Amino acid sequence: MIDFSAAAFRERVQKAFSQDSEHAQAPHDKTPIKDLAWHEGEVLHLKDAAVLIPIVDRGNEASIILTQRTDHLASHAGQIAFPGGKVDDHDASAEGAALREADEEIGLKPEFVDVFGYMRPYVSSTGFRIFPVLCTVREGFELVANPGEVADIFEVPLRFLMDPDNHQRKSAEWRGKMRHYFAMPYGDYYIWGVTAGILRNLYETVYSP
């Protein structure tokens, strides 16, 4: 039986990273993972973004905080997302950008967050180079959705998201081309696209045999 506590997750991540020399590199130097929907030559310039992968310490069963974006946003409207957003010029690092955005979007204060690593950058077909920042979150925090950006905040058990039986591979036509993507339906929430792709990469890095 796999231990899905926050402490066990962190230990597994650090073990996986210790076996891959590239994970010791700075975030911008890591080899990026390309989205399943990616087509070469389609995106000429990438914009940097950063997201938190917030693993909440819930005792024996950790969970991950996710949000549902509002329907009027310019990109990924209505979709399930990690807390995070674009890296601004005044951000000192991707980690700083992710922490700032998480505070602005859902009121997750940095004092409850313990950052301990970066996944490889994730390149999306929509033109973003996303830096996933791994962290644990201790209990006691209070979240408040920014109504201009976030329609809902919820948690999904880490055990569910790291189970490959819950990872569906889908395809659809978009911008005149057939695209592939992962989906992880959870109750009333349809986790798919970039968020599901990052979660799949997390599974392959930490839990895949």
Score class of each variant (00 low, 15 high):
Ala37Gln: 00
Leu44Asp: 15
Glu105Asp: 07
Val13Ile: 07
Leu66Ala: 06
Glu173Thr: 14
Leu202Val: 09
Asp88Ala: 15
Gly59Glu: 00
Val51Arg: 06
Ala37Ile: 06
Phe4Trp: 13
Lys34Leu: 11
Asp88Gly: 13
Asp163His: 14
Lys109Asp: 11
Gln19Trp: 14
Ala16Val: 04
Leu52Cys: 02
Leu134Lys: 03
Thr126Trp: 12
Arg179Ala: 06
Val113Phe: 05
Ala81Trp: 06
Gly117Cys: 04
Phe128Leu: 07
Thr67His: 10
Glu95Pro: 03
Arg58Leu: 04
Phe116Ala: 03
Met184Ser: 10
Val150Phe: 07
Arg100Trp: 01
Val194Ala: 14
Val194Arg: 12
Phe131Thr: 00
Ile2Thr: 12
Ala26Leu: 12
Val206Phe: 01
Glu105Pro: 01
Ala50Ile: 02
Gly96Phe: 06
Ala37Val: 04
Met178His: 14
Asp57Val: 01
His72Asp: 10
Gln79Asn: 11
Arg138Val: 12
Gly193His: 04
Gly117Val: 04
Glu104Pro: 06
Ala172Pro: 13
Ala37Met: 00
Val150Ile: 09
Val43Ser: 01
Thr67Asp: 13
Thr31Tyr: 05
His180Tyr: 15
Asn201Glu: 15
Ile130Arg: 00
Leu66Gly: 04
Arg120Lys: 11
Glu111Gly: 13
Ser5Ala: 03
Met162Ile: 10
Tyr118Gly: 00
Leu36Ala: 07
Ile153Asn: 00
Pro83Asp: 06
Asn60Val: 15
Leu161Thr: 08
Gly197Phe: 05
Arg120Ala: 08
Phe182Trp: 08
Pro157Gly: 08
Asn60Tyr: 14
Arg12Ile: 09
Gly117Pro: 03
Ser125His: 14
Asn60Ser: 14
Tyr122His: 04
Ser124Thr: 11
Asp165Leu: 13
Pro32Arg: 09
Phe112Leu: 08
Phe17Pro: 04
Thr205Cys: 03
His167Gly: 13
Asn201Gly: 13
Trp174Asp: 14
Phe141Arg: 03
Glu42Val: 04
Gly78Gln: 02
Glu61Ser: 13
Glu139Asn: 11
Asp29Leu: 14
Asp165Phe: 10
Ser75Lys: 15
Leu99Arg: 03
Trp192Cys: 14
Val144Tyr: 12
Met162Asp: 09
Thr70Ser: 09
Glu101Trp: 02
Phe9Ala: 03
Pro209Ala: 09
Asp29Ile: 12
Val113Gln: 07
Phe160Gly: 06
Leu52Arg: 02
Gln168Leu: 15
Phe112Gln: 11
Asn166His: 02
Met1Val: 13
Phe116Ile: 05
Gly84Glu: 04
Gly41Ala: 07
Ala183Tyr: 05
Pro54Asp: 01
Asp114Arg: 11
Pro121Lys: 11
Tyr122Ala: 02
Gln68Leu: 06
Gly148Gln: 12
Asn201Lys: 14
Trp192Ser: 13
Pro147Cys: 09
Ser5Gly: 02
Gln168Phe: 15
Lys34Thr: 13
Pro132Cys: 00
Ala50Leu: 00
Arg58Asp: 09
Asp35Thr: 10
Leu161Glu: 07
Ser171Ile: 12
His45Pro: 10
Asp152Glu: 10
Gly84Tyr: 07
Thr126Tyr: 14
Ala145Ile: 09
Trp192Glu: 15
Gly187Pro: 07
Asp88Phe: 12
Asp57Arg: 00
Ala16Cys: 04
Glu61Arg: 10
Glu104Ala: 12
Gln68Thr: 08
Ile80Val: 09
Gln168Ala: 14
Trp38Arg: 01
His28Cys: 10
Gly140Leu: 08
